[in-house]
Design a binder for these strands. Structure first.
Lengths: 236, 236
DNA sequence: CAAAACAAGATTGTGCACAAAAATTCGCTC
DNA sequence: GAGCGAATTTTTGTGCACAATCTTGTTTTG
């Protein structure tokens, strides 16, 4: 397995937040799971440490981080700042085709919500923000937005309340409306209030249940990747 | 020399943009300059590569990057997006003390400009934006802003026109005024136009002169660091 | 019985040596 | 003399072995 593949798997696993905090990621153990030498996993772990996706303690190793609601607030605040700026920019720059694309997306969200298809809706709901970042057509902004959004996914996974899953679609439509009408101020406001509301839907969960094992989660992700690769390359 | 010190020196040198593009940073050569083993510099170079502060070509090594005006436009656009969001946020959240602090800074800029002290003014001018990022009191936003701002410093160094140095102070004051009056929309607009104007002051320079040598630049930076360390620690 | 000290095991950190790849130099041919 | 190709040399990539550090379990002592 190549180094960037290991990075992709670990990065994705850490971002989804399936693993509870404080789990140790031993170099040797990961090397066995991925079937590579220790140096490979070592390099990847340190890189992830620099990106703050896990914590590296000198002479102790790498551990998954457990963001609390305090840090969660920080992430949502950063998103409000960045995505408000995005909204201001997009209100001035969106093409008609992009507006149409956004309309389709919001409609798809509403449809999934109406049918009670929660997995699809949840997926589309996150993709709405990725889509906006893409439409800035600015790789730097895209990277920053993706980093922040993936961090919130981690939080939602950990502190989600089923009550929160049943609302929030109208807010995306409000953002869309403001953007399509090129009303910059209104778009900025709609984005900020939306993200504030999303944050309030997080509820503190005190008892941290054990969660699935490290190997279990990793195997699943690796297999999923293999499936995708096989489907794309159609060989091996 | 410790690893994080090497990282600090190299990161700073690359960000200042003193070096022309395409300069090779050999692992062994840097190891000699810093007086450490090759593995140390190797790790640092790869980390800097991941952060896109230099380009790493497989089996060829690390090279300094030379951002062209096309990429420069991308950086300034990203700054407009992020810092517009910052302005919107700050217009709502600034304390009276922070406003006072900003007023002092803008006054200091004006004073430096009046006295024709260009180095000081240039320094203060960049710090204005760092200051705004700090005032969000959000580490995530601060990191993103610092990364983008340092990238523009690189561009200014490379494409600066002496004509551009003599204006731009009023724009900071306009941003300050809007923020202090808590006029969000006006602050966003002032920030966006300011950054657009800064970008227009860059001029394409075709002939890339040789620039100082790698070792020369690094030695200078290392010595500067030693001086700072000695002053702080007051020993060795 | 508790607590500290010590020893054994495991894990990370680091330098070294070799392998692989690219750049360069030298030599040969036309 | 120019162009092409092989050998050399330089540089990066990788695995291995050992050192340093931390954890854990045991023993000893107050």
């Amino acid at each position: 397995m190549r180094e960037d593949e290991i990075y992709a798997v670990l990065s994705r696993v850490l971002r989804t937040g399936d693993l509870p905090g404080g789990i140790k990621l031993g170099e040797h153990r990961l090397a066995e799971i991925f079937g590579v030498s220790r140096e490979r996993t070592r390099k990847v772990l340190h890189r992830l440490g620099h990106e703050r996706l896990l914590e590296i303690v000198k002479n102790r190793g790498a551990f998954t981080i457990a963001p609390d609601l305090r840090e969660g607030h920080m992430v949502y605040e950063a998103r409000r700042i960045l995505e408000s700026g995005m909204a201001a920019h997009l209100a001035d720059s969106l093409t008609q085709a992009q507006i149409e694309r956004l309309r389709e997306h919001v409609d798809a969200e509403a449809e999934a919500l109406r049918q009670g298809d929660q997995p699809t809706w949840q997926k589309l709901s996150a993709e709405f923000h990725y889509l906006l970042a893409e439409m800035t057509e600015n790789p730097l902004v895209q990277r920053q937005a993706q980093e922040l959004i993936s961090r919130t996914l981690m939080l939602v996974k950990r502190y989600e309340t089923n009550a929160g899953s049943a609302c929030g679609c109208d807010e995306h439509r409000a953002i869309f409306r403001a953007l399509s009408m090129r009303e910059r101020g209104k778009a900025v406001k709609a984005m900020a209030t939306h993200l504030s509301l999303v944050e309030t839907r997080l509820r503190p969960i005190l008892c941290e249940d054990a969660g699935p094992s490290l190997e279990e989660v990793l195997r699943k992700e690796i297999d999923a990747r293999r499936g995708v690769d096989a489907g794309l390359v159609a060989a091996s």
